[in-house]
Write a protein that binds this DNA or RNA. Structure first.
Lengths: 205, 205
DNA sequence: ATGTATACGTACCGATCGGTAACATTGTCA
DNA sequence: TGACAATGTTACCGATCGGTACGTATACAT
């Protein structure tokens, strides 16, 4: 009875057999390690050790560490938009409330010890080279975030929707970063309030 | 930005009196490399090679690579507050104009290819461990930034000065990060405009 | 049972990591 | 001239880096 991890996965994963594939265990462990401690800081040896597999197994499922990092971010991307869409779905037709819900959630998440910010943002900082596989995923995620925020600013009827959308993006990125810089009681807890203030000022007149 | 800091070295270089200090060459090169490509990404071998010195020379001047990184950030800190104080000095007694000047400058600096954001912020992302020498310097710098922004929000007569100060910090950090994420035409160019909007909204009533 | 394909493990690779020991060379000042 | 401090030279350390050659175990269809 070696592993009790990933039991939650079996909920959607039916059949009696279906042994937990090495690739999934590797990606799960890599996700956690890469996010919490950084991609460059984690070696493949530690990943395979914590995943209970061996190195060749990793390289049969992923062509390289860089591609494993990109896979981690693709998974991150999926879950990111799930959270985003949840905030959107909670307030249909009310983009201002959607933003507020999303930012309130971010603000809350930053108020925990050892908060590590946004995996996408962190990866971009770790890899300045625009051609790095991980950075490609990260940049695409941020472009999409910008697109959505600007669209919501339009829907809110902002005077200068692109400016407001970008302002919201700046606040969000600032929350991610200052969340991990300041820890509890940091500026990130004020992100939703400031965003609402900014929205208010951008709709005026 | 660190491009002009080597000039004095080449011009005033030795012959006459002082021998070229290895420590300075090392720190100059490390500054440039650490900032542009990241601390973890740069090995000591590359630093000494580019500095034209040898490894023992590095370790006679700096106890470790981590301490060299901290020294780089201490230098960064000095230049950071120089720039900040320039913006302040340009508008005596007018904190709102000081902020605007500082943010306008940041917004401009982000609009260049291969912009790499804030060295302090980047170092904190690279080293989540709060006890890391580089991170210690980084966190102190950010605490000071927060302190100053909040004080300026008070001076501006904001309704909730701590909230405004923190909001400005979020915008600034967002500009640093999105500057390196989006490159030219990114959201960071709107930082000063959004800050002014936020200030306006925070003074109202 | 047997062949076959797939999954996994043992052991290893060369390169690079941060860091050091021991000694030679240089410039400056007295 | 002699002494000192700073730097250079060469060679090395153990650990870890990302990555792989190659043999072994298991599953399944025939």
């Amino acid at each position: 009875m070696p592993t009790d991890r990933n039991i939650d996965l079996t909920i959607s994963d039916d059949h009696a057999s279906a042994p937990p594939k090495a690739a999934k265990k590797i990606l799960d462990v890599a996700y956690d390690l890469f996010y919490r401690r950084g991609i460059r800081a984690i070696g493949v040896d530690e990943i395979v050790k914590r995943a209970g597999v061996t190195k060749p197994s990793l390289y049969r499922s992923f062509p390289s560490k860089d591609e494993l990092a990109a896979s981690y971010l693709r998974q991150y991307d999926l879950e990111y938009w799930e959270r985003f869409d949840e905030a959107v779905a909670a307030h249909p037709g009310d983009p201002r409330a959607q933003i507020k819900a999303f930012l309130t959630r971010i603000g809350k998440r930053t108020q925990v010890a050892d908060y590590r910010g946004c995996g996408m943002t962190n990866a971009a900082v770790e890899y300045p080279d625009h051609s790095h596989p991980a950075r490609v995923v990260s940049e695409a995620n941020k472009q999409e975030l910008r697109r959505r925020l600007r669209a919501m600013a339009v829907a809110m009827g902002a005077q200068a929707p692109d400016t407001l959308g970008d302002g919201l993006l700046l606040l969000i990125e600032g929350a991610y970063i200052s969340g991990q810089l300041f820890g509890l009681g940091g500026p990130a807890q004020a992100v939703a309030r400031n965003a609402d203030l900014l929205i208010e000022a951008s709709l005026k007149k």
